[in-house]
Amino acid sequence: MDKTKILFVCMGNICRSPSAEAVFTGLVKNNGFAKKFEIDSAGTIGYHAGESADRRMQTHATKRGYNLTSISRAVNPDTDFDYFDMIIGMDDENMHALKQMARNDADLKKLYKMTDFSLEMKYSEVPDPYYGGDAGFELVLDLLEDSCQGLLEHVQKQ
């Protein structure tokens, strides 16, 4: 059976998308589905390419048992749209950028917004915590835990 390949995307790939990658990786591992998924993250811009996740995000994620190991990279439309089954943006700005990168209707059909999978939390986006305080990083993790559970349920129904 083929793996479901998921790419999480935020702007710089140092806060939200590497956190989504770690949360979803932990969720599928804890549920015995690790071999059924390939999970990665990227940014709509390459400004932080080659960098680790934001230290503050890492600190908050570690407190919840998540290890943010990914290294930032930019979305590559020529390979990522072909390779991944689902490309999931964190907010409307990321979704707009991803739609601009899409080469055709098949690419557009792979795009989803993270909060579309929310089960309980009522947010339309995963907000960027970069310029905020601790509460912003905690909110991101709360939203990702909720939405990743919904994403797993969505994929299992397919």
Rank of each mutant, 00 (worst) to 15 (best):
residue 48 H to G: 03
residue 14 I to E: 03
residue 73 R to T: 02
residue 11 M to F: 13
residue 76 N to F: 12
residue 34 A to R: 10
residue 34 A to V: 12
residue 121 M to H: 12
residue 50 G to E: 10
residue 92 D to E: 14
residue 37 F to Q: 05
residue 71 I to T: 11
residue 106 A to T: 14
residue 88 I to D: 00
residue 38 E to K: 10
residue 95 M to D: 10
residue 87 I to S: 09
residue 127 P to R: 09
residue 90 M to H: 08
residue 47 Y to G: 04
residue 52 S to V: 02
residue 73 R to A: 08
residue 92 D to A: 15
residue 113 K to A: 06
residue 118 S to C: 06
residue 88 I to T: 05
residue 63 K to F: 11
residue 46 G to I: 07
residue 92 D to H: 13
residue 82 D to P: 00
residue 71 I to R: 10
residue 63 K to A: 14
residue 97 A to D: 15
residue 48 H to N: 09
residue 10 C to F: 09
residue 65 G to V: 09
residue 109 K to V: 13
residue 117 F to T: 01
residue 74 A to I: 12
residue 70 S to W: 05
residue 62 T to A: 15
residue 57 M to I: 05
residue 51 E to V: 00
residue 117 F to Q: 02
residue 69 T to E: 14
residue 113 K to E: 08
residue 107 D to R: 01
residue 92 D to M: 13
residue 17 S to Q: 02
residue 102 A to P: 09
residue 85 D to E: 11
residue 39 I to F: 06
residue 29 K to D: 11
residue 124 S to K: 14
residue 53 A to P: 01
residue 121 M to P: 00
residue 114 M to L: 06
residue 81 F to W: 04
residue 41 S to K: 03
residue 81 F to C: 07
residue 99 K to V: 14
residue 24 F to T: 06
residue 89 G to R: 03
residue 50 G to Y: 08
residue 132 G to L: 09
residue 96 H to D: 12
residue 105 D to I: 12
residue 21 E to L: 06
residue 63 K to M: 12
residue 63 K to P: 00
residue 118 S to P: 01
residue 41 S to G: 05
residue 15 C to Y: 00
residue 62 T to W: 13
residue 95 M to H: 07
residue 8 F to I: 10
residue 62 T to P: 00
residue 81 F to Y: 09
residue 126 V to F: 06
residue 94 N to S: 10
residue 60 H to K: 11
residue 122 K to Q: 13
residue 64 R to F: 09
residue 58 Q to F: 00
residue 37 F to L: 09
residue 107 D to S: 07
residue 49 A to H: 05
residue 94 N to Q: 05
residue 47 Y to I: 10
residue 132 G to I: 07
residue 72 S to F: 02
residue 62 T to K: 15
residue 109 K to C: 14
residue 99 K to I: 14
residue 124 S to T: 15
residue 43 G to W: 02
residue 26 G to Q: 04
residue 19 S to A: 08
residue 83 Y to E: 06
residue 106 A to E: 15
residue 36 K to G: 04
residue 69 T to F: 12
residue 46 G to C: 07
residue 14 I to Y: 03
residue 107 D to P: 02
residue 55 R to Y: 12
residue 81 F to E: 04
residue 95 M to V: 11
residue 69 T to Y: 12
residue 67 N to G: 11
residue 129 P to D: 08
residue 122 K to Y: 09
residue 45 I to G: 13
residue 23 V to H: 00
residue 126 V to Q: 00
residue 96 H to P: 02
residue 26 G to M: 02
residue 14 I to H: 01
residue 49 A to F: 06
residue 43 G to Y: 06
residue 22 A to D: 03
residue 19 S to W: 01
residue 43 G to Q: 05
residue 113 K to N: 07
residue 54 D to Y: 01
residue 12 G to P: 01
residue 127 P to C: 11
residue 11 M to D: 08
residue 115 T to F: 04
residue 52 S to G: 02
